[in-house]
Design a protein around this nucleic acid. Sequence first.
DNA 1: CGCTTATGTTCTACGGCAGCACAAAAGCGG
DNA 2: CCGCTTTTGTGCTGCCGTAGAACATAAGCG
Lengths: 407, 407
Amino acid sequence: MTDSRVPSGARQSTLRATNLALALRAVCADPGELSRAGVAAALGTTRGTATRLVDELVAGGLLDEVERGPGSRRGRPATPLAPGSRPVGLGMQVDAGLVAVRVLDLRGRVLAERLHEEDLRDSDPVAALTLLGGLTAGVLASLPAGVRVVGAGLALPGLVDAGRGLLLRAPNLGWSEVRPADVLAGLLPDGPVPVLGNEADLAARSVAERAPGLPGPHRDFVYLSGQIGIGGAAVLAGRVMTGSSGWAGEIGHVCVDPDGPACPCGSTGCLERYAGRLALLSAAGVPADAGPAELRARSRAGDPVADRAVDGAARALGIALAGVVNVLDIPTVVLGGHLAELGDLLCPRLEDHLIRRVLSARWRRPVVTAGAVAPAAGATGAALGALHGVLEDPVRWLPAGEPRQPW
Amino acid sequence: MTDSRVPSGARQSTLRATNLALALRAVCADPGELSRAGVAAALGTTRGTATRLVDELVAGGLLDEVERGPGSRRGRPATPLAPGSRPVGLGMQVDAGLVAVRVLDLRGRVLAERLHEEDLRDSDPVAALTLLGGLTAGVLASLPAGVRVVGAGLALPGLVDAGRGLLLRAPNLGWSEVRPADVLAGLLPDGPVPVLGNEADLAARSVAERAPGLPGPHRDFVYLSGQIGIGGAAVLAGRVMTGSSGWAGEIGHVCVDPDGPACPCGSTGCLERYAGRLALLSAAGVPADAGPAELRARSRAGDPVADRAVDGAARALGIALAGVVNVLDIPTVVLGGHLAELGDLLCPRLEDHLIRRVLSARWRRPVVTAGAVAPAAGATGAALGALHGVLEDPVRWLPAGEPRQPW
DNA sequence: CGCTTATGTTCTACGGCAGCACAAAAGCGG
DNA sequence: CCGCTTTTGTGCTGCCGTAGAACATAAGCG
């Protein structure tokens, strides 16, 4: 007997499951544009087969037949399909500055949300999670009848062990070895246990897709989440690379200068010491509570101290990101959080650094853009992640779907 | 009309193709250990189905029925299966110091090889490739009758555009915009066009698997190829991450010290300036033609200059690798080339640096090991890559297999 | 108002796997 | 030595899912 892992063989039912998933994904990638015939064309099957698949998905609520627009082509009019509106995903987030809950449906529409700003640095985990639980209970109670929560996710700014549902360490919250489900369980109605995820990974996911299966503006990019620290995530072919334990993306602790200042993490010259929110504001002489907007205003007004601080951050970001791009070959960078707020100042300078330091820049020019400045992007990503369970295995969510393997 | 890419739907023949591939992979992962019944168990199918699949693969030469050993269990003795010995992959390599050709079969056995050492720095591409073509023609002519070359690969130390068959730039060879197939085509018998690949990526592949589908000692690791420069590759779940254009892994040009020496690449303080073969030897005061073995001997004999050079290289490698591990979460490093030769000196020091600088080291300790010091690992990886085509789509290589889509 | 065109549905045919029964080839025990 | 047990390998039938084609449906067009 050996330990080699070979996935189990495909049977007839696998075929149906695969095609159901493909049909669903095809509609999700093109909401409202595809009919049964369109699905058939997209999958390369006959219309007969597509009809069978779509009918089953419609019956299970995973697809909706929607009203057709005023399009007037020849022939029998098609019945446009859209992702079902009943399955919804629950996304939650706890960050150093806010607690957030957001509910999305398969079309990426926000059905309900609640944000609560509060300084949670060095906070008590139980208190903060109790607050989150209360917000979540309220949001869930406000949902229209008939929706079905298919999954839940919780974005946290730290190292997470998703398998065991354990937050190992979140420096900016001051939390260690916290198991959020223990606190949330008592506050929420019976439902899916939230899957833990890293805030930057999930925020990146919200950039990679606008709705489950609906690609966003970029498919391959490095995301930089400027919170108090600097998190990151690499997205390749629309998939967030989480590494072998889910701890990938700690760009904030890439060494930018070995002789630089010490970092609480034990290393020296970490990127965060130069481009983290607090480090950047203090280098610019901007009070911490004034925020990046003030820094941006001062720099644009010609304040040399502020501008030098931005320069320093751009240089540090350039060194770290050049390393990342050299190693990963993903020459597109999307800035988030406070870095996005400084986008017009940072992007061109960052591009200059990257062009100089990236080996392949001559053949493919690196591009740096600022992402949308949306609050609690992690919660959106967590909800998207929850909904992805439906796209990956639609059979589980159809009436006849057994919970899992029957034996 | 949209541009969304949804893979085409699965039909009955897809099922068979999938199961053929799974059966083949199961045997490759456990050569000589699985019978038809074992394949059935591995795939979770019935023995009847497994028989059908295996018979087809045996008829096509992709599997062999081998003699059974002296195992004496109860019941009817099984017929052990092994990957077929007729399909072979051709691997070639051009490096700054050698030209190599190697032929592997599906069991990972070397059927033939030829190595030729020569200083090819700033060489003429046509001359070098003509030399390679001659070696290859000789190797192919020496192959036993009945083998079938299923693919070919060429490992090159530089940036490669595999899609267009173009070597963009190989600094240490002094080559730019070279199309090797143009030279090789006239020298080789009609056969598969060699697929270009980066030397480090392919060397990493030869660490990741000992034969096609047979996992090597590590599944997740960062490989560092110490040639004249320093190439690298990240392997996750046994798959080499080549990035969006295939240019990933340029660890040699990660910035280790922004105030460090200028690099011909345009950046400053690149890792190669500290730990590249020539930089390291010259810092240690060892003549370039003496090589890493001499450096190792001096350091172990207590030569302070040599030891300080090793320290400097370890420090630079530590800074760069800590960044890579922080970003990718792959806390296993395998050293190759001249770095492997210095393994006993470098590994412990490198681990110390990583433990200090890697954020997740507390939960998962980074490990640095030296890989086997095998010459022309890139050629082996190229041959493995060529053979992988068989594992991915066995139907193409079976008698009834049409070239591709019939329409 | 009939023709054209595209969509959606229904029916039969075919291919592939599951499940079962059975044949084959060994060891075990009297 | 022979029958029993055990495991492997091979047929056979039935079920399931898709392909392909014919047909029904619902529009626009002249």
